[in-house]
Design a protein around this nucleic acid. Structure first.
Lengths: 248, 248
DNA sequence: ACAGCCGTTTGATCTGTGTCAATGCGTCAA
DNA sequence: TTGACGCATTGACACAGATCAAACGGCTGT
């Protein structure tokens, strides 16, 4: 394994040269909509890739902010911790999504990013991103869109946590995952959950037992098939119906 | 009242020339940290101010996105609506804060912004903001910080909605308001709520009756004094203690 | 292949918050 | 002043989801 000597990166992690121009995620990721030539400029900004093994932290709350990260492959969660030990999973991120934007405002990360499976990320040093987006309008604009999308996503989670009942939350969660897997070319109906029931519960504002019971009920009703972490969606319309209903 | 003919602005609304250089909020607002000369450039970008009367919309979900807005004076709420009628207040905004960033990602606003009292906002056309932030590094960087701060704030709300009990949520809400009033030079201990119990409840993921009961209990315990919308904080340390406790 | 352990499922009970309903208070208009 | 309306308070009761507890099942590493 090749281990170049880069200041920011622990030596225990493998790093390789990134190349957006050869990345099949580029239409999903930061260089969306750029010309070939512009993408090459981005290539030179995105210094290296880095492997992050399952359960390792990409960054921790309190660490200084230096870069944002694009997920090349794998699966992450982000969470926030309160002094008293309570924690809240704020999101699950997959290939092509951007991590670390929470750190821009105070120059310090405010949440933890943990790999839920062996993953690979591209490091985008933030000062260089700002420099380059002064040159490339499309990059500037797309980065703004990415941040705004994160805000809109957060509003969706607030809606979920603020107004929905347990089964609706889980339905929304499954539909969201399914949709994101679809747009990455994976099956919409069958996937493997990378997170535990406890992590799903934290994200959805529920206890793990409630998540488990809701899964069981969905299975009893023929909506899905659950085998531990393996999910097969049998009746996507039925799940959508759960969401549009008006119980509370 | 002066009524210039501006395409975007309803004629019923008064508009006046904005001037960041003469605005005492500029250290709180978008032009934070800019030189006098740079602020003048921002002045020329911020076309006009606009008055928004109580209960009027600044923008609605579904409307095209053209500009972000800085609150010059007044008080707003933002909320999201689901098809089935449920709605979630996603935030309350006061002077110096920025509205409208939800619209960047899809070029369409995804939430509603409503004035909770007669307010005045500065219109910042987004294409011009992007142009100018390519010239003024400090503006570019500060705008990124503002967006990031919004993401971090949203994470805080998720934590609140996901892990806290009713009284903790209300305590966090009061402390947050108090702190924001303080940094605007108002009293930390005494203020007027611009929103109804129902709106507070929507924001906190509670029913209005629960909000009302929590207020009453706080009053019984000598933490605050509530007179309808008028709040006086008597024991800020006691309120903070509610938050650090570990009940759930 | 095996043991050990972590994560999951399921059941029984408890409780915080929602729901429904009635009353009260303040403001505004006539 | 009076009435009316919108918002807030308070009480009684119901219920969704939390909590506590026990048993199960399938990875993971040796």
């Amino acid at each position: 394994m090749h281990k170049p000597n880069h200041p920011v990166i622990p030596l225990t992690l493998t790093t390789i040269k990134a190349a957006c121009s050869q990345c099949n995620l580029r239409e999903l990721c930061l260089p969306y909509g750029l010309s070939e030539q512009e993408i090459e400029q981005v290539d030179s900004m995105v210094g290296v890739r880095r492997r992050v093994k399952r359960s390792q932290h990409l960054y921790r709350a309190g660490e200084g902010f230096e870069a944002i990260y694009a997920i090349r492959s794998g699966f992450f969660k982000t969470d926030v911790l309160l002094e008293d030990g309570r924690n809240q999973v704020t999101g699950f991120q997959m290939a092509g999504e951007i991590l670390g934007m929470d750190g821009i405002s105070t120059e310090t990360h405010t949440c933890n990013a943990v790999a839920l499976e062996d993953s690979e990320i591209c490091i985008i040093p933030f000062p260089q991103l700002e420099n380059l987006s002064r040159e490339i309008h499309a990059l500037q604009h797309h980065f703004h869109k990415v941040m705004s999308r994160e805000i809109v996503r957060d509003h969706g989670v607030m809606m979920l946590l603020g107004t929905m009942r347990a089964e609706e939350r889980l339905a929304a969660f499954l539909l969201n995952l399914s949709q994101r897997f679809t747009s990455r070319g994976y099956s919409a109906a069958e996937f493997h959950l990378r997170m535990t029931r406890d992590e799903i519960g934290s994200y959805l504002g529920l206890k793990l037992e409630t998540v488990s019971r809701a899964f069981s009920r969905f299975q009893d009703e023929g909506l899905i098939n659950v085998q531990q972490k393996h999910i097969r969606i049998l009746d996507i319309a039925g799940i959508k119906k759960l969401l549009s209903r008006q119980p509370s």
